[in-house]
Each structure stands twice: as structure tokens, then as C-alpha cells.
Write a protein that binds this DNA or RNA. Structure first.
Lengths: 282, 282
DNA sequence: GAAGCCTAATACCCGCCGGGTATCAGGACT
DNA sequence: AGTCCTGATACCCGGCGGGTATTAGGCTTC
């Protein structure tokens, strides 16, 4: 069985994302007819119909959705192969650590201080870290269990903490010593914000849709949404808000995560020395 | 930066494995000059020297070793994309479960009985399961923590058990109620067998080298090696041998493992019903 | 040390295939 | 019916991947 070529996968991903051959071709920098031909050839080769062509464009079949997911990870793996190979030839290069905006500055500062190796910090949006690791743009990430997808990575726990709810100071809940998840999950007028899923769509619900930490910060400042976050995320605490511990929320573990083979040995050893021995010191 | 093509990766992997352009070309079914040209082009494109050419063939550089590892996983991902897409178009297809020869028959039998969906069982050698999962040849595997590499897979624990040492009935240790790891790790004349690493080389040590379960069975039967295995692996117990519990060996967890997105929902639910509620019933 | 070999690299040609433009086909709006 | 959108087809061309023949260099061998 002849293997697929990355070109075919790139073409298919473009069409599957645009759901429109013309736009996909434009994005790829080629003309529409060769793209149509390539996709048809891909379907013939797999023996599977990937797209339902329609007068108004195209729609993914079930098999097409599978291929879209698989092709993305495969293309990430190919891109990672190129990046990591180039980097392997450059031994003096600093480690690239990726983290999301809004993570604990203190912990990151401690980590960087403890590392003897040069570390370059790359900030990205929520949910992007795993992608940066998978395609080789970063060597290691600071992530949070159970929120982030850690599948496929080796990890080193750094810190465990409870979560607090951020509520307006004027709200009845603000006076409480602690609250439960059930109590904050359905507060009238203070719905929890909804984050996009991996495919870009939003789950149903009453809360506002947010894509970025800064959008969320805005909404919290306006008192339009309620937030359950790790206790150390003080970045969100304005004078108008109160943090109330959520007793039954799962603990959040801040972890260092890296793909197998990443040259993070020195950093991980430093992290172990710094955080394993005394993790209540921060 | 233009992406790599899978053809280039396949070519490089062949050369890196053979360390000889002529043999690699033969394996690939092409002539040697185009292969040389392709590798040179790959090196130019990456801007990295991958191989040290020598009068006697070729040797991998550091960057070459990185690319070999990365290319293998990338090619697995591409192959998986093709396989899983084809399978997605065939909804009636049975799940393919891969396990290593020598795993507990009872547990597997229970699992298959509990599953309502058709399941096809594929046996393979130790260390091969992860590969089969990664390149889409199988949907789900029965593996063992901490022995098997579970990175990148979702898992469902099935069973936890201690380990026993298998020793000749005539050996002094056979009379013991229990032993410790330290006691069995350095028994004169009864060294522990050595398994190959992922790259095919063997760690140093006094024990015999083994590649397959059957080779190991042979050695155990001859009384030439000592074995520490999960207590349920009765396949190894002949009359001439005695199983002695190893008190401080880490527990072995038999787990169901599958790559994200694998259509294993029904099987996993069946496994939960069967093993989570009463896991001491086997 | 010249001959012979074994390696990988180079030279050169050819045919295929991926890309281009022009055009067609068909359904949904005018 | 005409128009406009979609994707598919027809056809041509150039580049590149593949082939054979040969070169270049180093080790063995006598």
C-alpha cells in the first residue's frame, strides 16, 4: 500500500478546514483544479469518500473527520522531525519553554532561577501549548492537570493547589468562608464562561464565549462571569472581587511537560531539586 | 520553510537503519544514485549533516539520530492516518486488540466475554504493542504498567497484582516464603535476562540476551535465568520451578491502552463494568 | 605500490506527475 | 432562461524523481 505524502495531507487539511476548494487552493498558493485532482486522487487511493461535494462547497464525511484529526497530528509529527533535527545540530540553543499567559509568575520565576541552562520563554494562548510541543516549536511546557491535555508527554509535578472562585465583592457568595462546585456552577446572573473546544466550536450554555485570557479578564472585571481558578492565580484579583475557596474542586497540579526525547534533563533535575524537596515554600 | 515529504523520511530511515546506501536502495526498490541524491537534498534542506560518509558505509551524526527517532514516529503517524481513515469508512469492522504473548489468558478471556462488540485479537512480541497502536494496526492494547511505554495513550486500569520470582525448585531461594528485589537481582549463577532496548542494542550485564518470550521460556526451563513476573503469569510455571513472592517489587497494573480517538468506547465501558466493580474475582 | 574492490557521488537522460490555464457541468439564485 | 457560484475535466508544460553509466576516493591485497 503506497504511503500518503505530506503534500496530500496538507492539501486535505486545507480543504477540510475551509470546506471550500477555491479558498483552500488560494491558501495553499495553488490553483483550484490541481487541488480538486489531488483530493480525488487521495480519495481513490484510500478507497474512501472524504468529502460530500455540494453546490455550496464541501462537507466532511465521517472518514473525512477522522483523516482531518489524524492528518493534523501526522503533519505536526513531520514538522517536529524537521525542527528537532535542526535544533539537534545547534547544541548551544536555549531550551524553549512555553506557558500560557496568566500562569503563576512566581512559580515560573523560581523555575527559571533554579535552571542553570538558558531558557527562552514563549507565551501562547490556552490550549496551544500541547500543539507547540507536538510540532517542535517548544521543548517543554508548564501546564496544569487536569485542565490541559497531557497525552503523549512525560511530566514532572511542580506544585499542587486548590481552587478558588472569583466573585464580585457585592455578591452574596463573597461573604462565604468556602463554597462548593455545585453552588458556583449555577449562579443566576453569573454564568461560567465557555471556552472553545479543540475544533473551535463552543459548548452550549448560558455563559459568555471567550477565546483568550484577556477577554476573560475583561468579563471578570465587568462582573459578568464567575471564575474558578487555581488559588495562586492572583493575576485575576482586583479590589472589586473576592476569592472564595471551592472545597470540592479537584486540585490543580502545575506540571512540567515535554515530549519523549526532549533535551530537558537539566531543567527537570533543577525542577526536582527546587520543587520536590519543599513544595510549600512558594 | 518547505515541509519534508514522507518519501524523504522513508528514504532516510532506510539509510539510517542499513547504514549503507546500496543496501538501503535495494530495500527501497530504487537505485543507489537517486537515494544518495535524495539524502543530500534532505541534508541541504535541513541545513544539517545527518550522516558521516565513510569508506565502509555511513554513520549517524547526533542530528541524524534525532531525525531517525522523529522520522519513525512521524511515519507511524502518517500510516495511522491512512489506516484509521480507511477503517472509519467500515463501521462493521471488529476492534483490533493487540497484546503480547504470555499475558494473562484469564483476564483477556474475561475482557472478551464482557465486550459486546466483536474484537479481533492480534498477538505480537514484547515492545511491539505501542508501535502497532501508533501506526493504526491496532485500536487498543492490553499492556502493563510500569513495564510498557504508555506515553500518548489513554488508559483504563484492569487489574493490579504483585510480582513473583521464578526460581529452580532446587535453588535455596525456592524454600523462602518471600524475597526482596535486592536478593534476586544478584543471584550467583542465576542472572536476570536482558531485553533489547528500543534501538535493538542490549544493556550491559551478566544475563543472557533475549528477544522473545519463547526464548525466555527456553532459558527458564533450562534453569539458566531468573524471572520476576506478575503473579498471574502462570504460563511460566513448570513443575521444576517455584514462584516466590517478591515483597518490594512494584505492583504491576494490567491496563487497556488506546490512542486518543480510537473507537473503543464500548470495550472500555465493558471493561469498567467487569473489572472496576470487582477486581478480586478472577 | 599498482590492481582491484567497494563505497558514495556525479553526469546525464527520460518519463511521469504536479501545476498551470481554459473550459465544462450543474444547482441556486435572480 | 440567464447568471453566478460551485467543483470537475481537458489539456499542456516544466521540474523532479528515477534510471544507467561513470567517476572519485580509500582500503585491501598481493
Amino acid at each position: 500500500m503506497d504511503d500518503l505524502e505530506t503534500r496530500e495531507l496538507r492539501y486535505f487539511v486545507a480543504v477540510a478546514e475551509e470546506l471550500h476548494f477555491g479558498r483552500a487552493a488560494e491558501r495553499l498558493g495553488i490553483a483550484q483544479p490541481p487541488l480538486s485532482r489531488a483530493i480525488l486522487q487521495l480519495e481513490r487511493r484510500l478507497g474512501v469518500k472524504l468529502l460530500d461535494r455540494d453546490r455550496r462547497g464541501a462537507a466532511l464525511t465521517g472518514a473525512g473527520e477522522v483523516l482531518l484529526r489524524e492528518a493534523r497530528t501526522a503533519l505536526d509529527a513531520v514538522a517536529a522531525a524537521a525542527r528537532r533535527t535542526r535544533q539537534a545540530a545547534d547544541p548551544g540553543r536555549p531550551l524553549v519553554l512555553v506557558t500560557k499567559a496568566g500562569a503563576s509568575h512566581e512559580l515560573l520565576r523560581d523555575l527559571l532561577d533554579a535552571a542553570e541552562t538558558p531558557v527562552e520563554v514563549l507565551l501562547c494562548e490556552v490550549g496551544e501549548q500541547a500543539h507547540r510541543l507536538r510540532d517542535g516549536q517548544a521543548d517543554v511546557a508548564v501546564m496544569h492537570r487536569p485542565y490541559d491535555d497531557l497525552a503523549g508527554f512525560e511530566t514532572q509535578d511542580l506544585h499542587v493547589e486548590g481552587q478558588v472562585a472569583i466573585v464580585p465583592a457585592t455578591h452574596p457568595l463573597a461573604a462565604r468562608e468556602s463554597v462548593t462546585l455545585a453552588e458556583v456552577s449555577d449562579v443566576p446572573g453569573l454564568p461560567i464562561a465557555r471556552w472553545p473546544r479543540l475544533d473551535g466550536t463552543y459548548p452550549d450554555g448560558p455563559g459568555p464565549e471567550v477565546r483568550t485570557q484577556s477577554q476573560l479578564a475583561q468579563l471578570v472585571a465587568l462582573g459578568l462571569t464567575l471564575l474558578v481558578i487555581p488559588a495562586s492565580s492572583r493575576a485575576w484579583q482586583w479590589p472589586e472581587h473576592v476569592a472564595v475557596p471551592v472545597v470540592d474542586a479537584p486540585d490543580v497540579t502545575t506540571v512540567l511537560a515535554w515530549p519523549p526525547g526532549s533535551p530537558v534533563g537539566p531543567l527537570v533535575r533543577a525542577a526536582r531539586r527546587r520543587f520536590l524537596v519543599a513544595d510549600g515554600s512558594a
